[in-house]
């Protein structure tokens, strides 16, 4: 019981974080779907259209925020699922470390990808 009490405040904050990031994702995803798919003939931007779209610093900022929020929400959700299976505390700590590492790598790779494409867009 003591172990559960010690974790409880963290779990509450994570639950709030998961809810807030989920609401943010609904807004960001709606903008993404409409702008990237539903407003474009054919449903997908061709290379030239992507370059024109990504030149805007506002779009760049939105894509980076989107990447951060979706990575946070996804890995926190994966953590909740893992915890549903009643893992021992030692395993829980390893799960946290692994998911944190995956999150850092995912955000780092995604950020590199966005900035590389942004540079391409500026030179296009």
């Amino acid at each position: 019981m003591q172990q559960q009490r010690e974790r409880y405040p963290d779990d509450s904050m994570r639950w709030i974080g998961q809810s807030i990031s989920g609401v943010l994702l609904i807004v960001l995803l709606a903008i993404h779907m409409i702008a990237q798919h539903y407003m474009v003939e054919g449903g997908l931007r061709d290379y030239e259209q992507v370059m024109v779209w990504l030149r805007s610093p506002w779009v760049l900022a939105m894509e980076i925020i989107f990447l951060g929020v979706v990575t946070y929400h996804a890995l926190l959700g994966a953590r909740s699922i893992a915890y549903d299976f009643g893992l021992p505390l030692a395993v829980q700590k390893n799960v946290n470390r692994i998911l944190l590492a995956i999150g850092v790598v995912t955000f780092g790779y995604g950020l590199w990808l966005i900035l590389t494409i942004y540079q391409q867009a500026l030179q296009f």
Binding site: Q4, D11, W15, S80, Y83, D84
Partner: peptide, 20 residues
């Protein structure tokens, strides 16, 4: 504050429940 577990579950299904 509630956990991520749905409230209709029993306390035994609490996420991270150490006993099961």
């Amino acid at each position: 504050m509630a956990s991520t577990q749905h409230p209709s579950n029993s306390s035994k299904a609490y996420p991270g429940h150490v006993g099961s």
